[in-house]
């Protein structure tokens, strides 16, 4: 099993709690014999590294430095994420089972890689624009929501961390409930549930 994980934060870059979560997840998956490749953002440390657990990290910087907001910043960063993921794909003889993408930032890259190379993706939801933004009906938030929608529409599976979030995704984006998996935070079953989810997606791959 070879998985590529997209997250806009990963240690040492910590914005919120997603960074620590993705790090712990990657380590556990590597311990469970998954070939884990994390593609993330860093302003300068763009070398490829390998952690003691075996997790490989690929950090990309934004090719466009000046931006009018986080939305355009994210949209030009996506092509670098695509470049990093495509490099993994071609260097590993086109054997990538799935992409696991955290939140909306790198959904455009995941969708392109699915469309162009047939790599399915899991959309793992940490939070939604409707909950984050004080003004979720502004055109700015609506644009971000349209990217979230694209992710829900194109994803092979959706993973959430609570029944509440599952209900929110269904309510806001009209996603069929069969498409959503709730991953428990119980340390004993956590990784098993993620692996089960990954295996399901990899087996269903065309």
């Amino acid at each position: 099993m070879r998985a590529v994980i997209f997250s806009w934060e990963y240690p040492p870059r910590v914005v919120g709690q997603l960074s620590g979560y993705v790090s712990a997840l990657s380590t556990q998956l590597a311990n469970s014999k998954v070939d884990v490749n994390v593609v993330t953002y860093d302003d300068s440390a763009t070398d490829q590294t390998q952690e003691p657990s075996g997790v490989k990290t690929f950090r990309v910087a934004n090719p466009v430095r000046t931006h009018i907001g986080v939305l355009t910043w994210v949209l030009t960063l996506n092509q670098e994420v695509e470049r990093a993921a495509a490099n993994i794909y071609y260097e590993e003889n086109k054997q990538v089972d799935l992409i696991d993408v955290y939140d909306w930032h790198f959904i455009p890259a995941a969708v392109t890689l699915k469309s162009g190379l047939g790599i399915p993706f899991v959309y793992s939801v940490e939070s939604l624009e409707d909950h984050r933004s004080p003004n979720a009906n502004s055109s700015y938030s609506m644009a971000i929501k349209s990217i979230e929608w694209l992710g829900f529409f194109e994803a092979a599976r959706i993973s959430v961390k609570s029944e509440w979030m599952k209900d929110e995704v269904i309510k806001i984006y009209k996603v069929p409930k069969e498409k959503i998996t709730v991953i428990s935070t119980n340390p004993n079953s956590w990784i098993k549930e993620v692996l089960k989810l990954y295996n399901g997606v990899a087996e269903a791959k065309e």
């Binding site: 907001g69 949209l75 455009p108 392109t112 469309s115 502004s138 609506m142 644009a143 349209s146």
Partner: peptide
């Protein structure tokens, strides 16, 4: 979809163009 300004629309349009061309 709503876009806050022209430049953002261009980048969002590119997202769709890239997907459909792929």
């Amino acid at each position: 979809n709503p876009s806050p300004d022209f430049a953002t629309w261009v980048y969002l349009m590119n997202m769709n163009m890239q997907k459909e061309t792929a």
